[in-house]
Computed example of a mutant assay.
Amino acid sequence: MQTLPLAAGELRADIAPAAGGSIAGFWRAWQDGPAQRRTDWLRPASAQGLAQRDPLAMGSFPLVPFCNRIRNGRASFEGREIRFPPNHPTVASPHPLHGIGWQRPWTVAAAGERMIELTLEVEASPAWPWRFSAWQRFELSEQALVTRFGLANRDTAAMPAGIGHHPYFPHTPGTRLTSATAAMWVGDAEVMPTVLQESDAVRRLRAGVELAELDLDNNFVGWRRQALIEWPVDAQGGGRSLVLQAEAPLDYFVVYCPRGADHFCAEPVSQCTDWLNLLDAHGPGPLGGHRLAPGQSVEARFTLTPRWA
């Protein structure tokens, strides 16, 4: 599958429009004496993942028109019924996840050495009974990768919406994550939220924690829109770090850190799992989400800024 390259100084990125508009890689290409070295800031896409156009094998992919899961794919919004089928390619779950955009090819609207812009048009269907469009703009400088993205309601009725991105980061021994939030949605056995509380994970992430100590797939609220990832000296290079910084409305945070995995996810999102079905009980504050009138849009930005000695 063709990827589109970005280059600025020692930083590189590859964009995969056909694999759900994903970031296939983000890394530093550097010279270590006579050797050419590579340090990955996002988990690099595998050759098999690229061949299969599999977003779950990429470095990050967009979440539109909703983030995370909807219980059993069923929800109602202002007289329209959502009947979203299961969409995980490998796991038998009744709860569809991550929206629509990650499983569609995106169109290249513009491409240069340091900027790529993609667009997506989606017609209404029984799964999501609203027509919408989406866009992404990737901008690479010598200091950071900036991703701007948005969603617009092209239908004749108001539409519920959520947006976000799903970055996968390398998890090597000693990797640490620091991020301040107010509370965490505790989930059931199917990773669906049930109770909001200031858990031990909230306190540990706030102080900074070695990821090997965690086993999470949870939504966090009251996020300060910043996370620090730190890697120790290893085969990829010296001690280094990366700052993930988001802007409103990416006010919610998902941490997916399965024990023993070589990757973890730290996701900036604008709404929590199953927000439409939980709104009546909890209100928008702990859940987020948007109501887009016809023609209205929502957009956001997040930045990945690596640091190395």
Rank of each mutant, 00 (worst) to 15 (best):
H166S: 02
A158C: 14
I82W: 02
A29D: 12
W223S: 06
W30R: 04
N277C: 03
A152T: 15
V202G: 07
T194P: 01
P86R: 00
P96L: 01
P126F: 08
L276A: 09
S133V: 09
P5L: 03
Q143L: 11
N87D: 08
S199Q: 01
E210R: 09
F264S: 02
A110Q: 08
P258R: 03
G239Q: 14
L244M: 14
G174F: 10
E81G: 10
F77T: 10
T172R: 15
T305D: 04
A45T: 13
T119Y: 05
A144L: 09
Q31T: 13
D234A: 09
G150S: 10
N153F: 01
G239M: 11
V221L: 01
H282A: 11
G239C: 13
L278Y: 02
F84M: 10
V255S: 06
L120G: 03
L304W: 11
A266E: 11
D54L: 09
R291I: 14
G239H: 13
I70A: 00
E142P: 05
E213G: 07
P232E: 06
L50W: 00
Q143D: 15
G288A: 10
G295F: 00
G289K: 04
L216Y: 00
I116G: 04
A227Q: 00
L6N: 02
A248H: 12
P62G: 00
T107F: 05
P34C: 06
G295P: 03
A111G: 04
P249N: 12
L292W: 09
G9K: 04
V146G: 05
L145W: 11
E10K: 12
D280T: 15
R69N: 01
F132M: 08
V209I: 13
L287A: 02
S46H: 03
T305I: 10
A7R: 15
G162W: 02
N72D: 15
A57C: 13
P249H: 11
A293R: 14
Q245W: 03
R203T: 12
A92K: 15
A261S: 14
S270E: 04
A157I: 04
L151K: 03
Q2D: 15
F264E: 08
